[in-house]
Amino acid sequence: MKVSHLSDVVRMLNLIPYFEQHPGYSLMEASRDLGIDAQQLLKDLHCLWCCGPGDMHGELVDMEKPSYHGVLIHDDQGLDRALRLTRVEAAALLLILEQLEAIPDIENRQAVVSAAEKLRSIMGVKAGVVYDSDAARTTNSDEEHATSVIAEAIRRRVLIRCDYVSARSNTRRERVVDPHHLFSREGQTYLSGLDTETGEERSFRIDRMESVRATEEAAGPLTGARDFDPSDPFHFQESPEWADIELHPQATWMADYWPMELGQASEDGWITAQMPWSSSAWMCRFLLEHSDRIHLIGPESLRAQVAERARSALGSYAACPQHSKKG
């Protein structure tokens, strides 16, 4: 077997300490742990079977003939530890682990936390060369506490109370929520649950929740919750209302932050698009805020509401001329 890349050598040499620490593991189990195809693992082990620092029998790696059923190593030739990570590799791995730490209610969380702590203790101040690890861990303590409280409430099936700042209604008030799921989307953590006041399934951003606390009031069964679709966590595809809009050609980045289905460019270069909405108040505010880059085409009922909101705002300025001019 020809080995042409350093990465191949590193992968192979790490197999010996792995199988020594996991005696009896099959290649299928190793494939699951290492993310390497089982057939590739078998080829690598056959190559190692005939390798060593010399040519004599005592100078070669000694193992039972590798098979899919398991690997038994008799003489590792001193290769009993995995190769060291470079500083950049360790920092990149730590960054990934800390992203996993931020995922709410992740399976085997303790293993992720333990691995990250070991890397931090080994790297010390060098962890900050690529990524300011300690700073990242201290800025989201409130969100981590809220996430922990919510996860425990989901486990115990009790209601939670919080003060919530809503971007939809631009209000801040207490909410009582029957918590269903925690999920992450584009760097933000959300709670999907039943708003007990409206009786509707809603999504709540964790960083907009304050004074989160679990109650002793029993929540409903999770079997009655709406099915969670990771590809459409906010259920935009179920929205009964869609707006036809045109987007400025330099504002297509907005489709990465708001639910929009982009269409074709018109003759003047503006991009046709469709956008779901459920709250007319929020949609009017959104369209007016971005009126320099979004043109509303329809429906006509929404156009009328936006026009009315614009007239109302202009009327407020006209009623207070002393505040409408500088100086």
Results as ranks from 00 to 15, higher is better:
121 S>L: 11
26 S>F: 03
70 G>E: 05
135 A>Q: 10
300 E>Q: 14
258 W>D: 01
192 S>V: 02
50 C>V: 15
6 L>I: 14
313 A>Q: 01
73 I>K: 01
247 L>P: 00
95 L>N: 04
138 T>C: 07
43 K>P: 00
205 R>C: 07
61 V>L: 15
267 E>R: 09
125 V>P: 10
119 L>G: 06
238 E>Q: 13
63 M>R: 05
102 A>R: 09
127 A>K: 00
232 D>E: 06
34 L>I: 11
38 A>S: 15
116 A>L: 01
128 G>Y: 01
284 C>E: 13
4 S>E: 14
101 E>I: 07
241 E>D: 12
5 H>S: 11
185 R>S: 13
79 L>P: 01
314 L>Q: 08
61 V>P: 02
288 L>Y: 05
57 H>I: 11
219 A>C: 05
10 V>G: 00
125 V>F: 10
95 L>A: 09
327 G>E: 10
110 Q>H: 14
222 L>T: 06
293 R>N: 08
147 T>H: 01
67 S>C: 13
252 T>H: 02
275 M>Y: 03
286 F>K: 03
101 E>V: 09
132 D>R: 10
153 A>M: 09
45 L>I: 10
289 E>H: 11
128 G>A: 13
185 R>I: 02
300 E>G: 02
249 P>Q: 01
201 E>T: 13
324 S>P: 02
67 S>W: 09
309 R>E: 10
319 A>K: 09
37 D>R: 12
88 V>P: 00
93 L>A: 14
47 C>G: 03
58 G>H: 14
200 E>V: 07
153 A>H: 00
29 E>P: 07
60 L>H: 12
94 L>F: 04
55 D>E: 15
30 A>L: 06
233 P>L: 04
282 W>L: 05
236 F>G: 03
36 I>D: 06
133 S>R: 04
91 A>D: 03
278 S>Q: 15
189 T>A: 03
262 L>V: 04
298 G>W: 06
254 M>F: 02
236 F>Y: 15
297 I>S: 03
91 A>Q: 03
103 I>Y: 04
130 V>N: 00
298 G>A: 12
19 F>A: 08
85 L>G: 04
146 A>C: 09
232 D>L: 08
171 T>W: 02
203 S>K: 00
262 L>G: 06
73 I>S: 02
44 D>Q: 12
146 A>Y: 03
106 I>T: 08
133 S>E: 04
32 R>A: 15
